[in-house]
């Protein structure tokens, strides 16, 4: 992965995870999980606007807006799915507020760089890869629309 393309917030998150012992990475993921912001009111009123991520074992929904070239990312997942919430929260904190080009330049294998394979299993990390792919696809759709 070309580190020069990685937005600062995502790079910080990666460094934070890698600085920890494997078992402490779970705790950090739980912290992210607890920090996932509530959906804005207009999405809570219209859950049909959200897109479900099929790659994830638990129901997680994403929605991307592009306003003046800036990406706004919203996500929701149930409290019973803290791992999925944690993944979504990492992406929301790392991508929300970036430009379209910055989001599209995030390497597709970013989730694999967090050192979570051993802590949560590579299979589960793939759920986050699916989320990232869908965010980028939605960004492309919004820009094209």
């Amino acid at each position: 992965m070309d580190a020069t393309l990685l937005p600062a917030a995502l790079a910080d998150t990666r460094d934070d995870f890698l600085a920890l012992a494997v078992r402490d990475r779970l705790q950090l993921l739980l912290d992210f999980s607890n920090e996932l912001p509530e959906l804005p009111q207009h999405f809570r009123d219209h859950p049909d606007l959200l897109e479900r991520v099929e790659e994830c074992q638990s129901p997680v929904y994403l929605f991307v807006e592009v306003v003046d070239g800036v990406v706004r990312l919203h996500a929701t997942a149930p409290a019973e799915s803290p791992t999925t919430r944690g993944f979504a929260s990492i992406l929301v904190q790392g991508l929300d507020g970036l430009t379209v080009d910055e989001v599209l330049a995030v390497p597709a294998d970013y989730p694999q760089s967090l050192g979570l394979g051993e802590a949560v299993s590579p299979l589960r990390v793939r759920g986050m890869t699916g989320m990232l792919g869908r965010v980028k696809r939605q960004v492309r759709e919004r820009v094209a629309a």
Binding site: L30, S33, S58, P82, G86, V120
Partner: peptide, 22 residues
Amino acid sequence: DEDVLLYETGHIPGAVKVDWHT
């Protein structure tokens, strides 16, 4: 559990976690 972090969000007092995958 299916979710590897669910135990950490609250478990029966005294319970330990065994993750199917890891």
